[in-house]
Amino acid sequence: MAADTVARSTLALQFARFRRNRLAIVSIWLLALIVAACFLGPYAFPFTGEDADFDFIGAPIDFTSPHLFGTDDFGRDLLVRTLEGGRVSLTIGFLGAFVAGVIGVLYGAVAGFAGGRTDSLMMRLVEVLYGFPYVILVILLSLLFGGGNTALFAAIVFTLWLTPAVIVRSQAEGLARREFVEAARAGGMTSTAIVLRHIVPNCASVVIVYGSLLVPEVILSESFLSFLGIGIKEPQASWGNLIQTGTSAMSTDLRLLLLPGALLVAVLLCLNFIADGLRDAFDPNDR
């Protein structure tokens, strides 16, 4: 090793490798652009997505009018509605993935570390929950929470923490047998501290990769549920219900479908390219 080599953690090396993946980097910039547009864009307009403009009902694309991409049947600006819908979809996506990820990682780390009967019982519970029909669960939770975003969010988190739990558990199981865990116990660490300081950080690679796949998954299920009409409700917009409105007008006016659809596709592609890049950079098999 050269004397001038700066000590670098494996995590730092992996990110350096990630930065060389051009497609992933472009995706990150594009995604950042879309996120910024969704969160800041609507403020650039004098009206919100819920304000009806009775002079422009069902107006077509016209870059000289105040409604650049036209309006829907209620005279609401399509671009603003799509951006606002993006805000909802992206928030649920990132927040849902984060919460589901944290729950799943901790659950899996504890199960894998504890091993034995605790592990068996915890993982049998996961299998039972896996078998639960998703849509029925959402409907049940909607009844429980009186519908709305909370129910949707709860249902998404409730179903999506399972896979990270299983993935992290298998990692944790192997890590728990490594000698540095024994050394930590000899060093007087409690089991909780060992899980948080040694097990979870060593699962970082898989968590980052899987977490980046979880975000599009959440966005997709939000859109899917809103499309079915059991997710985000009108007048609040989300990409799911905008696409749903768009498909019903598809034969006469494609515009209503294309704008939210294109943004959804762009975001999903970006997230998948990023996830792909992360996996290539973190995969321990080609080190």
């Binding site: 953690s9 000698e179 540095f180 024994e182 930590a184 007087g188």
Partner: peptide, 25 residues
Amino acid sequence: FQDPLAALDPRMTVLASVTRPLATF
């Protein structure tokens, strides 16, 4: 331990590994 590399957390620097037990001791 027998396997010195397995006995060190790969995500911790040498100093962090060595000083970690002092948090308890």
